[in-house]
Design a protein around this nucleic acid. Structure first.
Lengths: 228, 228
DNA sequence: TTACTTATATCCAAAACAGTAATATCTATT
DNA sequence: AATAGATATTACTGTTTTGGATATAAGTAA
């Protein structure tokens, strides 16, 4: 059977938390025709002989120099006019990466920027997200990537309710405060410390290591690691 | 840019609850080459000039004669060898349809069958699902459709925790028992009646109509409708 | 009218939750 | 060495939520 096939792309939202704020890695588009915004999620086309997962990992490696990132499929976007030049269907992935790893990627590639992600809505319905970076200010997002980023935030918030989310965003050893900071950044609101501690520890997903936080100005917190 | 594009399909899991059991609409494949199983989720190829949502609704209309079904995107499956004949990437949708509507579809198309869906696993990880119909017994599922059905069940169960799921599976008027039966079918376990009532009513997603159930052998229950 | 079945409302104990306060521990300063 | 300051950790308490059981109401059928 032969018929006009649409073009398929895999785009990735590399998410991290920095300074208690949610951030996403964005790429400056140096296309000759700047259609619909200068900044976009890193991505590449899906070829016939490469699996989706491999394509996504290839994006991570080629665009950000990252190996073995935590990936999770988000959704597939296929509106007819999402790219005004040609029909492109985008399979979007969510990548959770510790800030330390993202920093290395940015330093190596000047087209990349780490933008803070904020959302306009407050309820449950979702909506668009906005990206802002210290160097470039508000970033104009290409295609439907503002909608996608909105869905990213929605997914992250939804997962926090039932799932031990956020550990992928942390290094091997971390304090309870680090975890709380991540949850607060994703939810966009402060959480009560004792309640958060209890819920986290009761799930038995992290375990104390006996080691203490280094270079603390005051009493250092205990370091935890994932139970595996 | 030109490169070898993969083929894209939209497949739909039409889900309904019948006799307190979870069911899915499956289609008998009459291909000359019966590769990997006789039964599959209804689907069609995605064309360059049709949106994903429209393609999915077209599947509903062409294969099952259903208009305006409730659709929700599930996930996109793109393993290299999921179809041994050629590379096909499947964007899978979940459709929730009242049993009355499904029945009409089956009567009109002999290639269709409504199969009970059961899962082997019990925990959280997920896994494959099995399809059984009274006429054909255990159905051999094509491609990775057993995995997809497993993800369908997982998604449905996950949504029950936080969302008013199941109302799409019911007619306009329904009893609280109908809703509970749907939840029990999805979760695969019995629920306590008073607790279920409270949680459901406290969410204010359904409202009493003052009307009574018809043709009940004993005391008829009150009929409810969605609040909108 | 009575037995029977199911729907609906009421009640109580157990568990989960949130918020506040108290204590412990470490650093920096004097 | 002692103390103040800041933060981590634990302990306590009242409130809310949950689950299960029970009681009451409402309808059908004999």
């Amino acid at each position: 059977m032969t018929y006009p096939k649409p073009t398929l792309a895999a785009d990735i939202a590399f998410i991290t938390v920095h300074n208690a704020k949610l951030h996403c890695l964005l790429m400056n588009r140096d296309d000759a025709t700047q259609v619909g915004g200068d900044w976009a999620l890193p991505g590449k086309f899906v070829h016939e002989d490469v699996s989706l997962e491999d394509t996504a990992q290839a994006v991570a490696l080629e665009k950000a120099g990252l190996r073995d990132v935590y990936l999770e499929q988000l959704a597939t976007y296929g509106a007819l006019d999402r790219d005004p030049r040609q029909r492109v269907i985008s399979i979007t992935y969510l990548a959770l990466v510790p800030h330390s790893r993202i920093q290395a990627a940015i330093a190596a590639n000047p087209a990349l920027a780490l933008a803070e992600v904020t959302t306009r809505w407050s309820g449950e319905t979702g909506g668009q997200a906005q990206a802002t970076s210290p160097e470039h200010g508000a970033l104009a997002l290409a295609f439907d990537h503002a909608d996608i980023l909105g869905d990213v935030v929605k997914r992250l918030r939804g997962k926090l309710d039932y799932s031990p989310v956020g550990l992928e965003l942390l290094p091997k050893l971390f304090t309870l405060r680090d975890v709380q900071e991540i949850h607060e950044a994703i939810l966009g609101q402060k959480l009560a410390k004792p309640a958060f501690r209890r819920k986290l520890l009761d799930r038995n997903l992290i375990k104390p290591t006996g080691q203490k936080e280094q270079a603390s100005a005051f009493r250092p917190a205990e370091l935890y690691s994932k139970t595996k």
